[in-house]
């Protein structure tokens, strides 16, 4: 079975371990074995080393990458920020002068960046390496008739010149749409498809500005798609959708119930029949009704069909 280094980051293993568990459940049946990268740390997050010093950013990212290099493995991460930070650091390490200085720092901890591991997002591994046909073979429940609004998130899209896997048009992403449609669900377009959710540096710098941006996106989803759920491949977008819809509701700024939100592999794990308690149990918004609908007997895919 093909192996790939599972780079966890911070939010997924520490705050949303049900997302981590969903990775561990879905990949082996699909033919990819995630391998732990022991001792990997923060990517480092945009608000830390990248905000202070470029070479320190590259050193901390490269340390993480060398853990995979030592195992001769590529890296897969489910966090968009981690994907962006690691990919950009690898891009900067392509500069000979930067690589020399950073490898000088890494020598102090007996490491050397070689550049032999590629960096993939979980969505890329599912879409490009595994493929939707293989995913379809492993489904236990059909999501036919359910409507999904997708949120790809920023850091797998731009800047496209530093990423190993690119969308055909980064302002009209289709990878997540394809991954959702294979479950049988419909994925309607909405006008703010590529819009930013407002999480990240913006959320911690000015929560009101962040919510303003978020609300515009959310209303576009609600009014244009009336989706049953929102599905994202960014763990930060997930937190924003799950945390900020109830805030807007409580303030009376939206007149509809918060839309249940899933990280994509949670939805896939549910459709593959895994236990909701293990793969989709941590959220502010009550997801139990939609989970019961997804795993209802009438949706079970019969053998041989």
């Amino acid at each position: 079975m093909e192996q790939i280094g599972l780079y966890l980051g911070c939010n997924i293993p520490l705050k949303a371990p049900d997302i981590e568990q969903s990775f561990r459940k879905i990949f082996p049946p699909l033919g990819v074995q995630p391998v732990d990268l022991e001792g990997a740390g923060c990517c480092p997050a945009w608000g830390t080393a990248p905000s202070f010093d470029l070479n320190t950013w590259c050193a901390i990212s490269s340390r993480n990458i060398t853990i995979a290099e030592d195992k001769n493995l590529d890296i897969m991460t489910g966090c968009n920020s981690c994907f962006g930070v690691l990919s950009e650091a690898k891009h900067f390490m392509g500069n000979a002068a930067t690589r020399k200085v950073v490898n000088g720092s890494l020598a102090k901890i007996n490491r050397e960046f070689k550049g032999t591991s590629d960096i993939y997002h979980v969505a890329h591994v599912l879409h490009k390496k595994i493929g939707v046909a293989k995913i379809k073979e492993n489904l236990k429940f059909s999501l036919a008739g359910l409507k999904i609004a997708v949120q790809t998130g920023c850091h797998t899209l731009w800047p496209s010149d530093v990423y190993k896997v690119k969308e055909e048009n980064s302002y009209y992403p289709t990878i997540l749409k394809d991954l959702c449609e294979v479950t049988g669900a419909t994925v309607p377009h909405y006008s703010r498809l590529e819009g930013c959710c407002g999480m990240g540096g913006m959320r911690s710098t000015d929560a009101e500005k962040s919510l303003k941006l978020f609300k515009e996106k959310l209303l576009s989803i609600k009014e244009e798609t009336d989706a049953d759920m929102i599905v994202t491949t960014c763990s930060s977008c997930f937190l924003q959708f799950d945390m900020s819809q109830p805030i807007l509701k409580e303030r009376g700024e939206i007149d509809f119930e918060p839309i249940p939100t899933f990280y994509y592999t949670q939805l896939l794990a549910l459709a593959m029949g895994f236990e909701p308690q293990q793969v989709a149990s941590i959220s502010q918004i009550d997801r139990r009704p939609i989970i019961a609908e997804i795993q209802s007997e009438k949706r079970r895919i019969k053998e041989g069909m």
């Binding site: 966890l8 293993p13 520490l14 705050k15 480092p44 997050a45 308690q277």
Partner: peptide, 22 residues
């Protein structure tokens, strides 16, 4: 980790080892 909170209980509940491999 830039973002850190004790994950043990949440991890146990979803069937993962309490300590992360990180």
């Amino acid at each position: 980790h830039a973002v850190f909170s004790d994950p043990k209980e949440a991890r146990r509940k979803v069937g993962l080892p309490e300590e992360t491999p990180t």
